[in-house]
Design a protein around this nucleic acid. Structure first.
Lengths: 136, 136
DNA sequence: CTTGACCTTGCCACAATGGTAAGGTTTAGC
DNA sequence: GCTAAACCTTACCATTGTGGCAAGGTCAAG
C-alpha cells in the first residue's frame, strides 16, 4: 500500500517539476523525504498530496512563504478557519493592489498609444510623454 | 550653463535612486558619465533628462530591456513612430495578460474565501480546495 | 581638524524558476 | 551480461530590479 514515488513521478502526480520539489525541500517547506540506498528521494502518498497542495496554492498566487503558513494550518487539527481566511484576504488585497497598478499603467499607456500616429514619421506621443520637456 | 549634477542630485532630479542609476549604467543602458578628479560621476542636463525618461518608462512598467529600445528610438531622428507604437502595444498585451492572470486568481480565491466560515472551527473551504482529496 | 554627508566599488540578498554540467543508477533491449 | 536511454544526484549560474551593507575616499561646514 505504501506506494513510493521517485521525484519525477511525484512531480508528474503533483503538477510540479522535480526542480521545484528539490527547491521547496531546500527552502524548508518540505520535510526531507526518505531515500533509496542510491540516494533517490522517495515520496509516499501523503507527501504527494502535500506537493499537490503546494501546486494548487501556487496557482492561486500564494508565495512560498505564505504557503508555509498554509501548510502548517492545514496540518494543524486545532486551526481556526478565521486564520486561514485572514491569510487569503491578505493575499486578495495584494492581488487587488497589483491589478490596480497594472490597470493604471494600462490606462495611461493605452491613451498614449492611441495618440501615436504609427506611421513612418518620427513624431510619437509616447516618446513625447516619456521625455521631460521636449524630445524632438 | 553646463550644470553638472552629482549622482545624488541627478537621482533627486530624475526620481530614481543613485543605486538604480549605477545599475543602469552597468547594464549598458547609459553611457558612462564624466567624472571629477575624485571619481564622482557628473551628469549634464541632457543626461538627467535621459534619467527622467527611464524613470517615466519604468512607471509605465517597461522592462529595462524594452527601455533600451525606447531610448534608442528616442535618440534616433529617423525613427518611425510605428516602431514605438509596436513596442507599446506589445507591452500593453503583456499588461493585459498579467491582469487576466491576476483576475483569474482573484475570482477563484474570492469564491473560496466567501465559502470560509472564518470562525474558530478548523473546517475551511480554502484548505479543502487546495487539498487534492480530503484535508480534514 | 573633526564631523557629517556625500561619493566610490564590491558583495550579498530577495523570489521563484530554469538551465547546465558532471556524475551515479536503474531498466529495457539485445 | 552489456549497452543505451532515461532516470537520479549535487552544485553552480542566470534571470529581474531593487535594496542593503561594508570599507574606504572626498568635500564642506563649524
Amino acid at each position: 500500500m505504501a506506494t513510493l514515488l521517485t521525484i519525477g513521478d511525484a512531480a508528474k502526480a503533483s503538477g510540479l517539476t522535480a526542480k521545484m520539489i528539490r527547491h521547496y525541500e531546500q527552502s524548508g517547506l518540505l520535510q526531507k523525504p526518505a531515500r533509496t540506498d542510491a540516494g533517490y528521494r522517495l515520496y509516499n502518498s501523503q507527501q504527494v498530496q502535500q506537493l499537490s497542495f503546494i501546486h494548487q496554492a501556487r496557482q492561486l498566487g500564494f508565495s512560498l512563504h505564505e504557503i508555509q503558513s498554509l501548510l502548517q494550518l492545514w496540518q494543524n487539527p486545532q486551526r481556526e478557519s478565521r486564520v486561514v481566511k485572514q491569510l487569503a484576504e491578505q493575499h486578495l488585497a495584494d492581488i487587488a493592489r497589483k491589478i490596480a497598478e497594472l490597470q493604471n499603467m494600462q490606462q495611461l499607456l493605452q491613451q498614449l498609444a492611441d495618440s501615436c500616429s504609427a506611421d513612418s514619421s518620427p513624431h510619437c506621443a509616447i516618446l513625447a510623454a516619456l521625455a521631460p520637456q521636449a524630445a524632438d
